[in-house]
């Protein structure tokens, strides 16, 4: 049995809204320890992974291992219909396994229940590379304010949705996007005095081409946290990470684009 309390505008809802146009299904694994969500875009170029430990989820109840495929559009449509003040609970029970119930309770105790079919109740358990593996593959990381990151992603995506480049050296971080009528460059210099807000950490310079559309999609999710951290590799997907709550985190991966 699973009971997942949700609030309109909470990180879970935010992630669902963000990946609405990228993927049809969110693969969710719940255990007594917490929730893991994984969604892959239809072209297999971007992945979002969300980890919510049970202690960060007030009212979270799960007494067994549950692996479900949630139809993202159905869930988002239902949440959008709810009121901001409603208490929302996502339920998967033993009797109705194969369906999901989303219950909305207003402050006046009026209720609305949505019931929809899970995409696939018996999904395989996905394994993402662990933190140590990932760290060994990345030659550089950059910590920066998430609001600033979102602004850049929006700017790059507006300019050129298809081709962008992130370059990092121990002195600066640059973003570049190629548009149809011109190019855009954004440059950040490492400030020696204050590394709490912006910090570059590189073993060797990295240059990575990517599709700005995906980063722009994910960037709004990262504003749930004050800081965002980018991990760059010459050969592996770009990873962007932010912390949610005490121990939760969101990670997005964007496949590198082969340079034209």
């Amino acid at each position: 049995m699973l009971e997942l309390p949700l609030v309109k505008g909470d990180p879970f809802h935010h992630v669902m809204e963000a990946i609405l146009d990228l993927s049809d299904v969110a693969h969710v694994v719940c255990t007594t320890r917490g929730l893991n969500l994984l969604a892959v875009d239809t072209k297999h170029l971007a992945i979002v992974s969300l980890l919510f430990p049970a202690e960060d989820f007030k009212g979270y109840t799960c007494d067994e291992y549950i692996s479900i495929g949630i139809p993202i559009r159905d869930l988002v449509n239902a949440i959008r219909c709810g009121d901001d003040k409603d208490t929302i609970t996502l339920k998967v029970g033993e009797e109705n396994f194969g369906t999901i119930t989303l219950s909305f309770v207003s402050p006046e105790k009026n209720t609305v229940d949505y019931e929809f079919r899970l995409v696939d109740a018996k999904l395989e358990r996905f394994r993402l590379p662990d933190r140590h593996f990932l760290r060994s593959k990345y030659q550089g990381s950059v910590k920066m304010p998430s609001v600033e990151f979102r602004r850049i992603c929006k700017c790059l995506s507006n300019f050129g949705d298809e081709y962008g480049v992130i370059s990092v050296t121990d002195e600066d971080l640059t973003y570049f996007a190629k548009g149809t009528d011109g190019d855009v460059y954004v440059e950040y210099k490492q400030q020696e005095e204050d590394t709490t807000i912006f910090k570059i950490d590189v073993r060797e310079p990295v240059r990575l081409a990517f599709n700005p559309k995906y980063l722009n999609t994910f960037a709004k999710v990262f504003t749930l946290s004050g800081q965002v951290k980018l991990f760059l590799s010459k050969t592996h997907p770009l990873m962007v990470e932010c912390k949610i709550g005490q121990k939760g985190r969101i990670r997005c991966f964007v496949a590198p684009k082969v340079e034209p």
Partner: peptide, 14 residues
């Protein structure tokens, strides 16, 4: 729907 193979391929890089 993705499979573990899709994910492995994704993370293996290019």
């Amino acid at each position: 729907s993705p499979t573990q193979k899709t994910l492995d391929r994704f993370f293996r890089g290019h």
